[in-house]
Structure formats: structure tokens, C-alpha cells
Design a protein around this nucleic acid. Sequence first.
DNA 1: ATAGGAAATGAATTCCATTATCACTTGAAA
DNA 2: TTTCAAGTGATAATGGAATTCATTTCCTAT
Lengths: 143, 143
Amino acid sequence: MSSRIKEIENKLVHAKFKLTTPRRLIMEILLENEGDHLTAEDIHNRLREKGHQVGLATVYRTLELFCELDILSRLNFEDASSYYELEEQDQHHHHLICLSCNKIIEFSDELLEDFMESIEKKYGFEVTDHKIKYLGYCSDCHD
Amino acid sequence: MSSRIKEIENKLVHAKFKLTTPRRLIMEILLENEGDHLTAEDIHNRLREKGHQVGLATVYRTLELFCELDILSRLNFEDASSYYELEEQDQHHHHLICLSCNKIIEFSDELLEDFMESIEKKYGFEVTDHKIKYLGYCSDCHD
DNA sequence: ATAGGAAATGAATTCCATTATCACTTGAAA
DNA sequence: TTTCAAGTGATAATGGAATTCATTTCCTAT
Ligand SMILES: [Mn+2]
Ligand SMILES: [Mn+2]
Ligand SMILES: [Zn+2]
Ligand SMILES: [Zn+2]
């Protein structure tokens, strides 16, 4: 069992949940596809391809649980589905979405820290998360 | 007919569309509720309250058209629905979303202009729109 | 070890916002 | 007027997600 899985298990146990077989299988898919943005159905399909049968409802429930425990982030691009990615403890990143080819380009937001702090002061709003999306045309799709 | 409606009509006509009765009625609802964030169903209900019968499908189609013409913005908060608000030509704004009471607080993004420009340079990405959400707890809901 | 019970699962169903369909209406142009 | 594309609205369909509920898993107390 990878140390990464162990780390997840600690988070689960700390919150009084168990690392069950379906949860472990789902986490393995997420780790194998780290860096991708996967839908619940993507994950369900990859499980089936590997010969594991996990109910789609369990996939949804597990993704929701992992989000609550900050193991995952739920992303909403400009379509109907939710996408999930492993939360990176060190650097939070955001997304550039190409309106032409739907390419997703990631960028970090170090430069935004000051702005976030000014928001907290100005509005007395305690920021716990932020979601920033830039929409437009990637270098392949303009000019 | 208000000058605001006239302005919208110009945009429509310029794009080869007509200001039909359903479209005008929907625009009136939006103007009467300027500053609010309304769902398609909200708008449909307010039309019915005023005795106007417009099909829900037409409400959806009109909202989509208005978004394409940059008359409206479509907003996605953290729930399943889309919310719409009139696009303000002068100052673009964003939203603080309270995770406790669901209050929406608006803020402008003047300070972010520099950051957006750095994104354009760094990635050769032509930004046409951006969506920024800060999630957390408003002043009524923390401490 | 065994029994009890809470937590978790999965097949099926339901939900619900949104989109598609299609017959009908409208209104501008010929 | 006639024509015909654009627009409309009742309804059905779609699809991602949530819910239901019978069953299974697995920890705990005896
Ligand atoms: Mn990402
Ligand atoms: Mn707003
Ligand atoms: Zn592109
Ligand atoms: Zn609040």
C-alpha cells in the first residue's frame, strides 16, 4: 500500500470513516490519473475496465466524502459535469479554459494572496477556498 | 419603453434578432430585479405572477441568447442551478459566497487586472472572461 | 468465536435542471 | 395578401446526481 494511500487512510480514520475496498479502489484510480480532471463516470468506467465492480452511487458518495475531507477538489468548468482532482497540499492551482478546443491549462495563484487578504479585511469575510477561472483562447486557438 | 430596453433592442437587432414580446417581458423582469441573481425558474415564476404566460423553454432560450450577446452573465454558485444577472458595462464584479447562510457579497476586481495581464503573457492565452469566487464565512457567520 | 448493530454498499428508482422536439404562431418582406 | 423564416410553448427526453432500501461488511461487546 502506497504511502499516499496511507496518508488518505489517516484522514479518513481521523474523521471516523473507514478505508473500505471501494474507497481504496477509487483512490487508486485517482492516484493513477493524478493531474487529470475526472468525472464520476470516468472513474466508474476505469474501475470496470480494471475488472472492479463498484456501484456508481458509491463512486458519487465517495467523491463527496473525499471532498469534505479535503482529499479532493470538485471543479466546475463550463459544462454540466463535475470534475475531480487530488488536492495538492502545497500549491493550490487554477484553470485556464480554452473556449475553442476545451484545453485546460493550470496556473498557480501565488500573486493573488495579497488580494485575498484585502478581501478578508474589507468584508470581514473569512475565506476558506477560492475558485478562479479564466476563459478565452489558448495559444493554439487564437491569431 | 425605457432607454435600457432600447439599448438591448439595439444589441438584438444588430445581431439580427428581434425584440419579441417574450424577450421584452423577460428583460423587464431582469431590469425590475437588477442586482439580484435569478434562476430561469425564478424568472418564469415572476412572469406568471404578473399574469404573463411565457413558456419555460422560451425563458431558457432567451437567457442563453442574452448571454451570447453579453446582455447577461451566467453564474454558477455551488449548487445545481445557473443564476443570471445583467452585465454591467462599466465594472465587472465577482462573488463572495457564505458557506453558512449562502449570502452573496459582491466585490470588484480592479486589483486583478495586472494579474490577468501576466496570465495572458505567460501562457499566450487570450482571456475573454474570468470567474472568481471566494468561498467561506461572512461577518455574520464566523467568530 | 459469536452475536449484534452501525456503517457501507449497489441496483434500482427518483429527482430536477436543462435541452430537444415539433406543431403552431408571428411578423416582416415580397 | 402571400410567403416563409424566426420564434414560441406544451410536452417529452436527457443526463448527472441524489435517494431508497434490501443486503453486505466489519467492528465491538460479550
Ligand atoms: Mn487542475
Ligand atoms: Mn452579482
Ligand atoms: Zn484552444
Ligand atoms: Zn453567512
